[in-house]
């Protein structure tokens, strides 16, 4: 069983986590949901499309103008509270590395802290434990939040991703986060060049074999763009191909911009893998 705050999910269930940015400058949507009403519309839309989780972020991952904790809270805390009120059954994740922000959003109703920067703030695990919420433990190779990889190399990137995320997961459990509420994420493109992200994709089954639920965040990222020589905005098909590879390997949670396309891709891959029944099969069986 997987427990994400208020909600629990069976071990064979895959989950779609829809990205909702409270930023004016994220790489894919470029501020499309910066206006609060637009962000609420986005939440309603992805819920209608079947997303089980929304991942609300107040700071873009790439370098840029520094956003203080106070500003980050101003962007996300009240927003989380309203989403909680309007969508009581929805799993609310917040993409933050700061314990102070994590504490505030959990009080406002968050179920999951998605620490995309791999434990940069050591107190985040304590916040998750205090509020009995879930955590995503990512691998960044020790990168400082909001930095790009520059000449990073690994002896074995998959080994590093497994060792670091499992160590972080152990730290979360030791701090009091429930075993069934800890997720690991190899973090494509974070502290990684395209070759690293491709290797992580190719060998994702090794992370799945740890037994911890694996989240993948592939959506429209640079490793897709560099693989196909396509700019942001033309990476959906490549994203979905990478999604298929991860789904066949057994990834559980998919952090995405495009919910409908991802859900179909993940379901198709799992039907092929024999982990999910066909929706309604009658051809030749009438």
């Amino acid at each position: 069983m997987l427990r994400l705050g208020r909600q629990t999910f069976a071990d064979d269930q895959t989950l779609v986590m829809a990205i909702v940015n409270r930023t004016p400058d994220s790489f894919f949507d470029k501020g499309a949901t910066w206006a609060e009403e637009k962000a609420h519309e986005r939440v309603a839309s992805v819920v209608a499309q079947g997303a089980e989780i929304v991942d609300i972020g107040g700071i873009k991952a790439a370098p840029g103008v520094e956003i203080s904790a106070a500003e980050e809270k101003a962007r996300v805390v009240d927003f989380v509270a309203r989403v909680r009120e309007e969508h009581p059954g929805l799993v609310i994740s917040v993409d933050t590395w700061r314990a102070e922000v994590g504490d505030a959003v959990c009080q406002a109703g968050a179920d999951l802290l998605n620490d995309a920067w791999g434990g940069a703030d050591p107190e985040l695990v304590d916040v998750a434990a205090q509020h009995d919420v879930a955590m995503v433990c990512t691998h960044t190779g020790g990168a400082t939040p909001r930095t790009r990889p520059f000449r990073v190399e690994y002896e074995d990137v998959v080994r590093a991703a497994i060792d670091d995320t499992m160590a972080y997961a152990d730290r979360a459990v030791a701090a009091g986060v429930r075993e069934e509420s800890v997720i690991i994420d190899p973090a494509h493109d974070f502290g990684k060049n395209t070759f690293h992200s491709l290797e992580v994709t190719r060998r994702l089954g090794e992370m799945v074999a740890t037994g911890r639920p694996v989240l993948v965040s592939l959506s429209n990222k640079d490793f897709v763009g560099e693989s196909l020589d396509l700019p942001v905005g033309e990476r959906l098909i490549g994203t979905l191909a990478a999604t298929t590879a991860c789904a066949l390997a057994g990834a559980r949670i998919y952090r995405v911009h495009q919910v409908v396309e991802t859900r179909q891709t993940v379901d198709m891959a799992n039907v092929i893998a024999g982990r999910l029944l066909p929706a309604r099969a009658i051809r030749g069986l009438q």
């Binding site: 999910l276 029944l277 066909p278 929706a279 309604r280 099969a281 009658i282 030749g284 069986l285 009438q286």
Partner: peptide, 15 residues
């Protein structure tokens, strides 16, 4: 009807 067999299950029973 072969769709009645447990060998061919669907998430939504077509029959």
């Amino acid at each position: 009807v072969l769709a009645l067999l447990p060998d061919y299950p669907s998430r939504v029973d077509p029959v």
